[in-house]
């Protein structure tokens, strides 16, 4: 054997290069987009809302968790429309939260393209558990 064997007794090569590259790419894009939004939001906030960001002290109300900030999709969307730095940061956080899920969707697609139906099915099963907890959590929140 000239080249090292990947895996052992495997019918399909474990996570072929194409699957890994695709998942890695999606994760990288998610991380970069999210980081860009987080930074933009912070800079916009410093410039446009110095009251919230820079000048005044962190109030007791904030530390106790009673401060108001967007925590619904509508709130984030409206906030971005008004050029709110906080809303842009939340959008960045949301992209970040969805990044691992996007990676899983990518691996489901990539595994099925390779006709690795078992791992495509396992990916879809994990996705449905995550989606289920999304829905359950959203309804109970």
């Amino acid at each position: 054997m000239a080249s090292p064997v990947i895996g052992y007794g495997a019918r399909t090569p474990p996570s072929p290069r194409g699957v890994r590259a695709a998942v890695g790419r999606v994760l990288r894009v998610g991380v970069v987009v999210s980081a860009a939004l987080l930074l933009t939001g912070y800079v916009v906030g410093l410039v446009a809302e110095p009251g919230a960001f820079a000048s005044h002290a962190v109030e007791q109300a904030h530390l106790a968790g009673r401060a108001k900030f967007p925590h619904s999709l509508v709130g984030v969307w409206d906030g971005i429309g008004h050029g709110s730095g906080e809303a842009i940061i939340v959008a960045g956080v949301l992209i970040l939260i969805l990044t691992p899920v996007a990676g899983l969707v990518t691996s489901a697609v990539a595994f099925s393209r390779r006709r690795d139906w078992l791992f495509a099915a396992i990916s879809v099963a994990v996705l449905s558990v995550i989606f289920g907890s999304f829905v359950a959590g959203w309804l109970s929140a």
């Binding site: 987080l38 939001g41 912070y42 906030g45 919230a52 960001f53 904030h62 968790g65 401060a67 900030f69 967007p70 925590h71 619904s72 906080e86 809303a87 940061i89 939340v90 960045g92 956080v93 949301l94 939260i97 969805l98 990044t99 691992p100 899920v101 558990v129 995550i130 907890s133 999304f134 959590g137 959203w138 109970s140 929140a141």
Partner: peptide, 20 residues
Amino acid sequence: AAASAVVYFARGDIDPLIAG
């Protein structure tokens, strides 16, 4: 964590000025 993060977001537990 992604699965539970959505719950924390909807509850208003993710403060952008701290989480950012």
